[in-house]
Design a protein around this nucleic acid. Sequence first.
RNA 1: GGCCCGUUCGUCUAGGGGUUAGGACAUCUCCCUUUCACGGAGGAAACGCGGGUUCGAUUCCCGCACGGGCUACCA
Length: 547
Amino acid sequence: MKGENLIPLTNQFLYLSAQFNTHMERRTRVRFAPSPTGPLHMGGVRTALYNYLIAKKTGGDFILRIEDTDQNRFVPGAEEYIIESLRWSGIIPNEGVGFGDGPYAPYRQSERKAIYRQYAEQLVKDGNAYYAFDSAEELEHTRKLMEAEKSAFSYNGITRIKLKNSLTISPDEVAKRLTSNESYVIRLKVPLNEEIKVKDIIRGWVSVHTAEMDDKVLFKSDGMPTYHLANVVDDYLMKITHVIRGEEWLPSAPLHVLLYRFLGWENVMPEFAHLPLLLKPDGNGKLSKRDGDRLGFPVFPLNWKDPETGELSSGYREKGYFPQAFVNMLSLLGWHAGSNQELFTMDELIQEFSLDRVSKSGAKFDPEKTKWFNMQYLKLQTDDELTKLYLADIKERIKSGTLVFNEKENPNFHFLTSNTEYVKEIVRLIREKAHFVNEFWDLSSFFFIAPESYDPAVISKKWNENTKAFFIALRDNYAKTEALNAATTESIFKQTAEPTGIKSGELMHLFRVLMVGLAKGPDLIGMVVLLGKEEVVKRLTNAINKL
RNA sequence: GGCCCGUUCGUCUAGGGGUUAGGACAUCUCCCUUUCACGGAGGAAACGCGGGUUCGAUUCCCGCACGGGCUACCA
């Protein structure tokens, strides 16, 4: 964010365009490139979001590419999960797996398998890579041996001359091994004594000496490329202009720079931006699946059921979060608009977002603030929208059988729970008390189901012969009234209360408990009016008989 | 261990050579209210440490400490 990086991305881009013809007229193209090894983590959603925002801001393209080069780690359903997560979050790629093919299809690396080999072989031909025949077991053995001597093994410029590869074996022998069925990998030949510099939009220049780098495998013995090769090749082929990814990739960025150089693509190399990590709320370290289970908040956008263990991990969607709240919260984990604004629509995010305001340090995730965000979005909904959501929630509760009640005591239950107007009135009374729509039920179940018990703390303290007499009188007076509206409800209450000499606050409190069973809830008068004369009289009678 | 990255209230962060170091969540107090929330007002709360540079450093530089990431034929 300092020095040269002060120039905003877009300006920086224009600035570069003026200097290099190769950058001229390059349309912004970014990609989100997860591997389908499990459910998409919320940190992944944030990465996707930042990519999306940059694309939209610059009128460019946002691509979803599936990096499934590791056949061993494939998890069924993971790809669909990724697609569904992005869709729910409103982060919609305009090209890629699940979102329609663009001009660079296919977007699944396993389907691009044939493409990578030629580049790996080109690298070998140019002397920048070599065949290596050491088996995984042999290398593992060496690694263990050196570990025992408290040093680390690295396949690099020093060790490669002692290992089994095309640099140490005669060309004839190599040719023989290649044509026979012996398995081999292709490794990058990292130059001996060089400083590799990577320019990162967020961190500035990062440099690493080649002596610290190892000869990474580019092409595996199963015929698949590794991440490094596939990533660079695809980014080049798909004309990616900005690589925006998690910080865990920063250490391998110099390797990627080397690859661009050796492949002759340095002039169209994308710009890099390595995002700070999302950290667990307590202690330190990367936010992981375990933390959600342990601390009771979702780490994933959607529910996920592990196909092997059957273990269920909860998602923001199923917990009742609005996708907009989820995205808004995510946007602010590591980015700041520079103003005091915290609530952003997606359009506003597109407008305001820039990579040079992304912070460098990891952000501890705060589940509490996430709830606050959801409440803010709840407030933004209309009564009608919330009614619709509440109705759906009730239906779901009935369907799942989590809602139990006495059918005889509540003959109107099904009528009430499907009465849109009635439910809307309830929503008006309780909406301000909730952070989530799924809290509505607990805040208002008494509108559908008459109380069967009464808060004992209040009853034992305030229920006596005098108050009982009052409520009998009140019941009778209400029964005699035409209808209960706010005015009559209140005036009759007062008229009845006055002669008793009991504080009306006390009586109100008791009245509430007799109506709903609890010592808390929405406005009492509003509640009574909504329940209606008949129901109020019935509930009073019930209470008088029971207590 | 090695390499790389980072470090402002408990948390997310703003800021930046001279500021009463700002905001938000959480927390506390008060107000609103029959209650619970919501809302409003206010409070407590931070520049990791040591050296430089400078008239002056939280801000710039260097060390250290601490934290994190990477160190696979995983991404």
